[in-house]
Simulated assay, not measured.
Amino acid sequence: MDLGQLSAGVVMGIAAIGSGIGICTAGQASVGAWKRCFLNNKPAPMVLITFAGAPLTQIFYGFILMGSIAKSAKPGEFLLGLGVVSGLALAISAVVQGKVAAAAADAQGETGKGFAQYIAVVGICETVALFAMVLSMVSC
């Protein structure tokens, strides 16, 4: 078994799992905020879709990292460890980003204010995933 090639799939899979969880969390909050708007005869802000989709990017980071790992000549054991840890970093970033985005969707839906502040905090969670991807690529 080629552990290096296995690790390429592992990083992508773990990152995708985290993205799915984060999207679910943020999406549920966005739908709930829209429901409250409809019940109160207020316009439903479409900007909430931004929060719902924010954790999706970690899948792309996992895909990019998968390509770097697959091309690496480093030992398979090293790459497997890198794939697991990097995938977990991307996944945790996505899950946390989903939770932050859920709170942001709730606040934006309720008040109609603060989008710039909310998206900035969501972006900080995104930065963790970017750092994890780039630093892992440098390690390949």
Rank of each mutant, 00 (worst) to 15 (best):
D2T: 01
D2S: 15
G4P: 03
Q5A: 10
I14M: 12
A15D: 05
A16G: 11
A16I: 03
G18D: 00
G18R: 05
G20K: 10
I21P: 08
I21G: 08
I23Q: 13
C24F: 03
T25P: 01
A26F: 09
A26N: 06
G27F: 10
G27K: 04
S30K: 06
V31P: 08
V31G: 14
G32L: 13
W34T: 04
W34V: 11
R36W: 04
C37Y: 07
C37N: 13
L39C: 03
N41I: 05
K42I: 01
A44C: 13
M46W: 02
M46Q: 14
L48F: 08
T50V: 13
A52D: 04
P55T: 02
L56A: 10
L56G: 11
L56M: 12
T57A: 09
I59Y: 07
Y61N: 08
F63C: 03
M66A: 15
G67T: 01
S68T: 09
S68E: 03
A70C: 06
A70T: 00
A70R: 14
K74M: 08
P75R: 01
E77D: 15
E77F: 06
F78C: 06
G81L: 03
G83A: 13
G83P: 12
S86K: 00
L88G: 13
L88R: 04
A89G: 08
A89R: 10
L90I: 10
A91E: 01
A94H: 13
Q97N: 07
V100M: 08
V100T: 08
A103I: 06
A103S: 11
A105N: 03
A105Q: 10
A107Q: 11
E110I: 00
T111D: 08
G112M: 06
K113N: 05
G114E: 01
G114C: 02
A116Q: 15
Q117H: 11
V121D: 06
V121M: 11
V122S: 10
I124W: 07
C125A: 14
C125Y: 06
C125W: 10
E126Q: 15
T127Y: 08
T127D: 05
L130G: 14
F131R: 07
A132Y: 01
A132D: 00
M133T: 13
V134D: 04
S136M: 05
S139P: 06
C140Q: 07
